[in-house]
């Protein structure tokens, strides 16, 4: 009698387990194993390319001028982005758009959109040119960043960009962001004679 009760309880538990959806499962505990190998900072340096763009942490040594940037741009970027970064056969303009965000014809360029100038360095360095990313030297990346900023009227022709000066460039969209504040809709579940 007693064992029958136990069996029926067990069967019940098994049935509940079989019905359980994934969030009712027991959380899987971290196993007491460690398979990672320690790695030294110097050994991972070639991968450590990110730039924290508001304060420029991660920007490497090096420097580049607007004129040097124009030379690099014309050799490696014009084919997709067009002359003077005004748009080419593959991508649209990278110049202008400042002040366009309150209209329905927003123009997104590094000049109008980037809140922090080091985004140029981080992105060009990791992703450009698209057919050969991570091939530019730090000097070339600083130079192309300078050229794009200059075309957008944000730094003078004589500017030199490096890990100190790039962070100081004031971008027009610096205060242009709000943190996610959704849900921002209040739909009601109306069933009959709605609207």
């Amino acid at each position: 009698m007693r064992s029958l009760k136990v069996v029926s309880i067990l069967t019940g538990l098994l049935a509940i387990a079989a019905c359980a959806t994934q969030e009712t499962q027991q959380p899987v505990a971290r196993p007491d194993v460690k398979f990672g190998k320690p790695i030294a900072a110097a050994d991972l340096a070639p991968w450590n390319i990110d730039v924290r763009t508001p304060d420029g942490v991660g920007l490497p040594a090096g420097r580049g001028t607007v004129a040097e940037g124009k030379t690099v741009y014309e050799a490696k970027c014009t084919v997709c982005h067009g002359v003077d970064a005004k748009g080419g056969p593959v991508y649209g303009t990278m110049v202008g758009g400042i002040g366009s965000f309150k209209t329905n014809t927003r123009v997104l360029t590094p000049g109008s959109m980037y809140p922090y100038a080091p985004i140029l360095f981080d992105y060009i360095n990791r992703a450009m040119p698209m057919d050969k990313p991570q091939s530019l030297s730090a000097n070339e990346v600083y130079a192309v960043s300078a050229y794009i900023l200059n075309l957008n009227g944000l730094i003078p022709d004589s500017a030199v960009m490096d890990q100190n000066s790039l962070v100081k460039v004031q971008m027009p969209n610096r205060d242009g962001f709000i943190i996610d504040d959704r849900p921002d809709t209040q739909a009601v579940r109306c069933m009959t004679n709605c609207k």
Partner: peptide
């Protein structure tokens, strides 16, 4: 980090000209 992908892309335009991040 405020990378390009989380500022100039994958953000949502708001009527006042700001972007939701």
């Amino acid at each position: 980090w405020h990378t390009r992908g989380e500022t100039a892309r994958y953000t949502d335009p708001m009527p006042d000209g700001k972007w939701r991040q």
